[in-house]
Structure formats: C-alpha cells, structure tokens
Design a binder for these strands. Structure first.
Lengths: 343, 343
DNA sequence: AGTGCTATGATAGACGGGTTCTTTTGTCTA
DNA sequence: TAGACAAAAGAACCCGTCTATCATAGCACT
C-alpha cells in the first residue's frame, strides 16, 4: 500500500512537529500551547498559535487515542437503521453520548439476515470504541453461548436476560400488562392480538404479556394474528377479525402502525371504534403521521433507555463489570380508541 | 491523568508484544499471523492463534490508524436523528459505508439551535474520520464564508450550492416541478401550498418550485401556508383552506405527513379527495403508517443520495477535490389522491 | 560441499501526541 | 559579581502496529 509522503510536499496532515518547525520551537512547546499548559512565554504562545492557524493544524485522533487508551466513542450495531425500534435507540443513545461528549460509531449489519453476536462484536472491536452496544431485534443464534470481549463494556439491547452480559430494553412484556389491565378495567375479555413477525424479540414479549394477562384471568386466548408491523398488515388482520370474530370487543395490536390499519379495517367493515371495538397499540408513534391521533397506546421513554444503555456500555460511568438486566417501564397513554364494551 | 499500567497485572489491552511473549515468538511473527502473510509454519501459526484467543487480543485501532493514516470511518453530523430527512440520510449513507467496509461516526448537534459549519467541522475533525458529512437542514450562519478543512473531504447535504464545498441533495426544487406538472396536466390551476417551517432548507426549495411553476404559467400564487411537517399542522392548514378558498382545486403539501392531515381536514369539511380537491405530498413516507396509502407523491432514492454523499466525502473514491453540486431527481408516484378538477 | 529455499528472530524506524526529566535562559538579591 | 531561583524550552521516550532490513538456522536437492 502506498504510504503517505513523509516530506513536506505531500498532503500528509499537519503534525505538531510541522508546527514546531514553522514556529521555530520544539514540538513539546507546541504541545504545551495546544493543551493550555503553563510556562510558555506569551510571545512564544502567540507565535505557535499563529503557526497552527497558518498550517491548519489539527491534533491527530490516532496519536491521541494511542496515548490515552480511550476513543471517546461508543459502538452501536443494528440491523436496520430505519426500523422504529432501532431509530429510537440511536436517538436515545445519541442524546446520552452527547451529554458525555462522546460520538457514536454506527455499524449497520445486514438488514435481512440474522447475525451472530460474536460477529457483531468482532466487527465493533476493530473500531474506535470504548464500549459496544448491540441491538438484538431478533434472537441471535449464539445468544446462549456468547461471551463478551474482556476489557470492553458490552450491552445488548433486548428483553432476554443474559448471564454474562448486561441487557437493557424497554419493557415489552410489561407494556402488554398495562394495556390489558386498562382493557380489563373497562370490562373487555375477548381481546384479540395482532402481532409483528414472530422472529422479532419485541413481538415475542409483547405477545407473551397479552397471553399471560388473559390466562391469569382464566380467559382462553384466541389465536394471535401475525403482521409485519405495517399498517397494511394491520388492516388485513383487522378485516379478518371483523369478519370472523363477532365476540371480539377489543384488539391489541403490537404497534401503533398496525393498530392504525386495524382501525381503518374495522371502520371499513362497518364497526365503530371505540363504540363497537376498542383498539390499542404500542409505541406512540403516530403523532407525526396522523391528524388527531386518538389511539390509546404505551409510550416508552427512549432517552432514558438510551442513557441506561450508554452508561452501562462505557466503563467509566455506571455499574462496570456487574451484569444486570434493566427493563424500563412504559407509560399508558389513554386516548379515545378505548371504551366500555358494547353490551 | 492516571496512565494505564504497563505491567501485565492491569487491564491494559493486549498488544502484539503480549501475544508474542505468550506464544514464545517474536512480534513480527504475530504480525505475520494477524495479517495472514505467508512464510509462517503451520504449527507456529496455530500456537500464535491460540495465544491470541487465550489473551483476547484485538489489534489496536489507534496504532493501526496512526500507521495507516486512515480511519475507515466517515463522520456524519446532523441536528436531529429522528427527522425524516436525517434518518433517511443516515440510512442511505450506512448502506454506502457498509459497501466500502466503513463505519459511520455520528455526531448529533443541538436539536433546536442552529449550528455553524465551522463548529460542526471542528467537532468532526477531532474524531476518527476520513471524510466529513454535514446535514444542513437549516441555513448555517456561516454558509457563505465557510472554508472546508484542507486535507479532508467535506460534503454538505443541502440544496444550496457552495463555491468551495461539494453539496449533494435530493432535488427538493425539482420534486415540486414534477408534482405541479402532474397537476397542470390534469387541469389544475388553483393550487395551494402547505409548507414546512420556513427556516427549513427543504421547505425553501420545495416552495420555490411551487411558486416558479405557477408563475411560469402566469398564475398568481396564493399565500403559502406554514406548517411544522406534522399531520396535525397539515390538518389545521387544510381546514383553513377548505373554509376560505372555494376556488382551490388542489393542495400541494410539502411532505406526506401534512398531506395526510390535509386530506383528513378536507374530508371533515365535507370535501372529497380527489373528486373535489386533489392532494399531493412529498417523501412517500406513509406506507408503514397508513393502510391503503393513496397519496400521489414524489419518492427520492435515498440510497443513491447516500452513495453520492459518501463517495464524495471519502477521497479514495469518486471525484476528489473537484467541487460539484449534485441534485438527485425524485420519482413521481401517481396514486389516487389526484384527479381531474371538478368543473 | 555448495546452492537455494523457508521460517524465524533481532533491530529499527515511522506515525503523532503527551509526559517526564533535564538543560538553558533570565531575573532578582546579597 | 556571584548565587539563588523560577520560567522557558528542549531531549528522550512511550503508546501499538506495520514494514524494511538483515541475519541465521534448518532443510532439501544437486
């Protein structure tokens, strides 16, 4: 590989030595000026600063990191940037990182194929990161056997607990309980479920919450329907339920987008929401897209999650070494898509 | 500052020298094994690899970068990760970066305050980046006077052209012409405009396109309305127009979310879409949120934009040094929110 | 015995910033 | 004018990886 030119004619970035030569001082004096250390004559300081300005000096990240042993960046690995869950994760972590004057090194894995934690870790470890965050939106094949790299904080964002790795996530199980309790209090019992794709971890826990809530009240859960998180898939499912289940009084859709589709389907089938059928969703994600959003849902504090994730991934802050499993509860937002069931 | 321990007891990361000592070979042999170079005995190779495994060796990013003068990462600076425009930018660039085996170093600036290009550049320059990408979603105060850092590729994602910096963006002016031509062909002339916040660069160009298209046909543009990109703001504007402008036959909303709100407002006002009023939007962003999306809109190829941005930011690829302004045309998607105007 | 090859080691230097130790310079006082 | 002392600046070295020389040992083939 062609090396950068060592002479002054090339495009090699400007180093302290270059500045020192230009200012007629030693490299250490430049260092002192750059870092604001004392014991530098005012005239010398100005001469050095002028040289820095002139040459366009910027300290080398590589050199500094090599010395300090720190990168001031945290690695984040997700499969698809645009998915709501991942996007909100990036946003939350970006906020937390900014507070700690940290950058985020983002690596996007394959959008469609599953990836192993080992591979994700391997890729992240080759990058300038003080900590590793892996978004595990679908079960990794090596989750059970995975061992985190020693010497670098690792956090997996998922609902599954791991014996050797800290995991953080919004409580995708608890949100179901919140919604189901709300529906139970209104008097609903025949509550159908429209879920996301079954490989999704969020889906698995949201569905489990729905099922457990019913069984705890000795109500037999009717077969859950599977969508793909999109409004259209929610519409299909809603249409199917409207036609085939006359006993149903409420629908729990595993995200707001599908809930929105289901509402449209119910109305197209001549059913009123919430008078005939109540509908709830999760995420509180409709506000930007739908006017007069009336959907009862659960909102997660994604910035808090981002903060928790960040602070557990970067060893300097928070509980270093200890493996914990953090579940951040959501907040029930009651709007007008839920009501007392028809008699 | 406390330095990392140099002895073997501490938590200092494992270096090649440590591996060499453990395997009883020289440091070069470790290097040869690590880099897959020839002339290493199979037994030795295995012994070294075992030692690497045992000690958990990972090559130091800092050391390697210092030597190679490359970071294999591109810096991306945006003000708000969650905004549709920024999100799609991240997504597109992430794809392009992955193709080049590159990571993204993401820095989020203040979500609310404007930031200067100089400040963004300064922050990015202190990070491990081979190129700098700045998303300028609102006009920077120093846009005119800004000089890019020498020796590092810089790209600004914006519609404004710059004499000394390459700029890339989706064609937010041209998309308006596409939509207006479509409406003109159907026979519309009284086309009202619902825009985003006026500080937004995208808004400025989308609105200019609308206005120019009308003036080119010698139609006097009626006062544009200003929303905040949300469906609710589109609803408000749509409601206002339905009540105050009986001559209007079409609405151009500057994004799909406001268009969706406007449609709801028109229908609440007793007007049919598209029979009474046609509505168009931009972005093609509704599919996940709305069932049976019928909105005529413009879709941008965000991955192409990401690729263009990436390749102009990283000097190794593409047109290095030359300052260009790239505008990527959108594609008109005709659905069923537009029709021939009522007589 | 001589030639040619492979495997490995020893040594050093480049990369850029920062720390520690040492030397030079300047000023003030006895 | 010599001595004390502080300020200013320099010299050397470290961080970890990679490469560039050499040098050397072992082995096979002629």
């Amino acid at each position: 590989m062609a090396r950068r030119p060592s002479n002054d004619t090339g495009t090699r970035p400007v180093s302290m030595a270059d500045v020192a030569r230009a200012a007629g001082v030693s490299q250490q004096t430049v260092s002192r000026v750059a870092n604001g250390l004392p014991n530098v004559n005012e005239q010398t300081r100005q001469r050095v600063q002028a040289a820095m300005q002139e040459l366009g000096f910027r300290p080398s990240y590589a050199g500094r990191s090599l010395r300090d042993g720190r990168y001031h960046s945290v690695g984040l690995c997700v499969n698809d940037v645009t998915k709501f869950g991942n996007l909100s994760m990036i946003d939350g972590i970006a906020s937390a990182a900014r507070e700690h004057n940290c950058a985020i090194t983002l690596v996007e894995m394959s959008k469609t194929e599953e990836f192993s934690l080992a591979e994700a870790t391997r890729r992240m470890a080759a990058l300038p990161v003080d900590g590793i965050i892996i978004g595990m939106s679908r079960m990794a094949p090596d989750f059970e056997t995975f061992d985190p790299l020693p010497g670098i904080g690792t956090v997996i964002v998922t609902m599954y607990a791991h014996p050797r790795v800290t995991t953080v996530d919004s409580d995708h199980y608890g949100c179901s309980l919140l919604l189901m309790d709300h529906l139970f209090e209104l008097g609903h019992e025949q509550i159908r479920y429209i879920g996301g794709p079954s490989f999704s971890v969020d889906e698995q826990f949201r569905r489990a919450g729905w099922q457990d809530a019913l069984e705890r009240k000795h109500i037999k859960p009717q077969a859950p329907l599977e969508g793909d998180w999109s409004a259209n898939s929610g519409y299909e499912a809603g249409r199917f339920l409207a036609e085939h289940d006359r006993a149903m009084t409420a629908i729990y859709a595993a995200n707001d987008q599908m809930a929105n589709g289901a509402i449209a389907a119910l109305r197209d089938s001549g059913l009123r929401v919430p008078e005939d059928v109540s509908v709830v969703g999760v995420d509180d994600s409709l506000d930007d897209f739908v006017a007069h959003n009336e959907l009862t849902t659960v909102r997660f504090d994604l910035h808090q999650r981002g903060r928790e994730v960040f602070e557990h991934a970067v060893p300097e802050v928070g509980t270093a070494g200890k493996t914990v499993a953090i579940r951040i509860p959501g907040q029930l937002i009651i709007r007008h898509s839920t009501a007392i069931p028809r008699a």
